[in-house]
């Protein structure tokens, strides 16, 4: 599996690989000895299939509670209070 991650890292950093087209990409995947199932997913542009094989399950992308600060008054929202202070100054 490690070589597919290395391949993706290399692809992410390479202008040539990111625009290689299917044939060029297929050649590179073969040269890097990426497993067939993983290579097929990459060639098909199927991120879901790749994730299923490498890291199945839910990954949460949410990192912020946007129910806003005044609904959590007990916590002093640092950013808001700093801005208020600046505003008053």
């Amino acid at each position: 599996m490690s070589n597919v991650i290395d391949f993706l890292e290399r692809m992410g950093a390479s202008a040539g690989l990111r625009t290689a087209g299917a044939d060029g990409l297929a050649r590179e995947l073969t040269a890097a000895a990426v497993d067939d199932g993983l290579a097929q997913a990459i060639l098909a542009g199927d991120a879901l299939a790749l994730r299923e094989q490498i890291a199945p399950g839910v990954f949460y992308a949410i990192q912020m509670d946007d129910t806003p600060p005044d609904e959590h008054e007990e916590q002093d929202d640092e950013e808001t209070s700093v801005h208020m202070r600046l505003h008053r100054a």
Binding site: I5, E9, L50, R51, I54, A55
Partner: peptide, 14 residues
């Protein structure tokens, strides 16, 4: 690691 994708997390592990 606070990332949104298992493949990306595998990359960070490397």
């Amino acid at each position: 690691a606070g990332v949104s994708d298992g493949v990306v997390e595998a990359w960070v592990r490397r």
